[in-house]
Design a protein around this nucleic acid. Sequence first.
DNA 1: CAATATCTTTAGATTATCTTCAGATATATA
DNA 2: TATATATCTGAAGATAATCTAAAGATATTG
Lengths: 224, 224
Amino acid sequence: MYKILLVEDDKNIQDLIFNYFTKKEKGLFDIDIASDGEEGLEKVYENNYDLLLLDVMLPEVDGFEICRETRKESDVPIMFITARSNESDVLSGYALGCDDYVIKPFPFPVLYEKAKALINRSKGLVRSKIFTSGDISLNPNNGIVISDGKEVKLTATEYGILKVLIENKGMIISREKLLDIVWGYCSGTDERVLDTHMRNLRKALGQNGKQIKTVIRRGYKIED
Amino acid sequence: MYKILLVEDDKNIQDLIFNYFTKKEKGLFDIDIASDGEEGLEKVYENNYDLLLLDVMLPEVDGFEICRETRKESDVPIMFITARSNESDVLSGYALGCDDYVIKPFPFPVLYEKAKALINRSKGLVRSKIFTSGDISLNPNNGIVISDGKEVKLTATEYGILKVLIENKGMIISREKLLDIVWGYCSGTDERVLDTHMRNLRKALGQNGKQIKTVIRRGYKIED
DNA sequence: CAATATCTTTAGATTATCTTCAGATATATA
DNA sequence: TATATATCTGAAGATAATCTAAAGATATTG
């Protein structure tokens, strides 16, 4: 559940956005509404939003001012939604540190997807990147492998093998393919090195090493 | 210096974007160009870009396909820039995991600011903040590094290395990437300089130098 | 232009990791 | 069941990556 603050003085647009955002995928977004800039700033200070949707022309304090004040101490994602489409207004918005500047009118589904994309980006959730198999998890982003809750230190080769297996969980990966992917070639004579690395990898994973099955004559696979 | 890949078949637009982006704030952006989708995908695989600008309608492999393939293993920021303005096309783009969908024609300054905002967001640099790792803190605003409560004077190279590591705390940064980011290239012969700088950096940080771990064959990382 | 600080190069020492090997064990096939 | 084939294991040797230290090159400062 992500919390969004909408600062917009037009009741009609308030309702339309509120309805679209709260009903589309139930429970994904929770929307707070402020009808003028002063109220908007107060809410920003008092809450911890995941996204601000700011109209620019507002009573009391305008959207640009809200953005400027907010950016002094927060990197919360900010999108302007406004009818002011002058290039110079758009550039002003970006200069103040907004993330997107959407010009009215716009299709609600597009605004919705923009909001989702931006929130995901801000939380580093663009691609769900942690692979798991049983109690083993591998995060290709930082290269950390966890088995039974403890980080295990793998060598580069072991890591490469595990990555291929876990990315293709359940599939049998042939020895040739493993040699090819991890070493970049497939010679043949020294093909037995893989045995040793598989053994070391299994040992490093402890109890969970058993998740790596050998399928005789066909390769290896990992299964939870 | 951020690296951008532009995949666009129209030579004219290629030139316009290239010129605008490379000349505006000199050295902020470095632009690679691919004229068809196949070349684009190759470049994505071979390089480490900070942003992809993808046209949708392309020879060989279209922009959507590039996005889909890229997202299988990367969360690099992606912006579509295309004349296809149907709502369903826009939604397709977001469904594939893009960060923004810009409809042609657009003012170059706006595209430029969008690119900057997105890259900053992706790197967590929206608001400059103080990075910490254990008892080390680095303030990119004034370039001051504090270790164990005392300011330590780092050389520019040492500072650059620490900054990259601490901005990506916990992640393994490859030697190539460090060389590339800090020196702007990656030659190969004189690659061993890094060893020395890492040692000097660790020594300068005193006890806390131990927070910088070397991950053999894969790079270095900092952890608290 | 000298003095100083910083960066880069080099090469030997020290590890970590990879590979090889040979015998043991398991599995397929006839 | 016998035999051939495939994989596992453990130890040791080979290779490659990183660390260290010291000296030469370059840049910066007064």
